[in-house]
Design a protein around this nucleic acid. Structure first.
Lengths: 177, 177
DNA sequence: CCGCTCATGTAACTGGTTACATGATTTA
DNA sequence: TAAATCATGTAACCAGTTACATGAGCGG
């Protein structure tokens, strides 16, 4: 079966970070700025077990007290799966992404016109906050692709801010509609 | 319990389109450019039943042959739920969205450097195709908020194209990393 | 009368969430 | 030594997917 985005993302993290524990993967996902990746234990541990059963990951158990610490590495099949996921891109890769603000704007007419401005203030404040946090993080990144990816996220947030400004001008303007 | 994004989106569609059948909601979601909204029957029909049980939707059964056609309308509680969903925005509303291309770029180093350019070509072609389709659709839209939302989606796609160009320049440039 | 669109559903499955449970190691 | 962090898992649940099943109405 087609692996999920999260599964392949985990393969990618293992590829990049060398031998890692499932816990380290979790913390990396939890640190991600995107709300898409939760990294809950209930997602990661079964997922890792799944990938291991499919032969994409290999775990090496290290004694740690009277428990074991399981360090994950990619198998050749795992690397192949990662590469197959990277390219070619799925058909929907270019599709418009899910933006909760844009989705809500569709139905903004259900709120009284007096509150539209407050809605836009709220949206702008939240995007700006995210942008500031991302910029602070970007300054600390060193990896080539990490920086490029963060740059993309930054451009996305800037596009949203520009758009919110346009929406504000349009809604403040002529009411003929 | 907190309603899901899909549930509230359905409330919004019912608010906007007046009395509609569940089927019409499906087709509207299926037509959406975002791959996020699938509108499968197995999602919509149980969802509508759920919203009805919670008193957010009311259905009026119309005889149609020897079956019934169920037309949905918002209840006052449904309108209140829709408004509560619209504002205030959830804390994560400003977060960076999920972009499959950006996610993959993180791990592009797992592919040989010779194939990076093909990856970017592929990504650019897919985003451009989406942009063209969206522009064609935008020309046909008439609703104020519909147009504004589509404009936001367009800006997002343009930001991604700009970013892909930047990535290309960066990767073509100095290899010192 | 054939095929398309409108229309309503169900059943099995699955990936991910929330919440819980446990214990080792490190650091203040 | 107490608190924070590292570490591994499980159980119940749930929303959404895929695939299936059925049938009305309509245009060619």
């Amino acid at each position: 079966m087609e692996p999920t985005e999260l599964e392949c993302c985990v393969l990618g993290i293992v590829w990049e970070r060398g031998p890692v524990t499932a816990h380290a993967i979790r913390t990396e996902l939890l640190a991600s700025r995107s709300s898409f990746w939760s990294g809950s234990a209930g997602a990661i541990y079964p997922l890792v077990a799944r990938l291991e059963k499919r032969g994409l990951l290999r775990t090496e158990a290290r004694p740690w007290g009277d428990r074991v610490k399981r360090e994950l590495t990619l198998t050749p099949a795992g690397l192949a799966a990662l590469r197959a996921w990277l390219a070619p891109l799925p058909g929907w890769a270019g599709a418009v992404t899910f933006d909760p603000i844009r989705t809500r704007l569709f139905f903004l007419g259900a709120l009284p016109a007096e509150s539209w401005s407050a809605f836009l203030d709220d949206a702008e404040a939240k995007v700006r906050a995210e942008k500031a946090a991302l910029q602070a993080e970007l300054a600390k990144l060193s990896g080539r692709f990490e920086r490029l990816a963060a740059g993309g996220a930054l451009r996305e947030l800037e596009a949203r801010l520009g758009w919110l400004g346009e929406v504000r001008r349009e809604l403040a303007g002529p009411e003929f509609c």
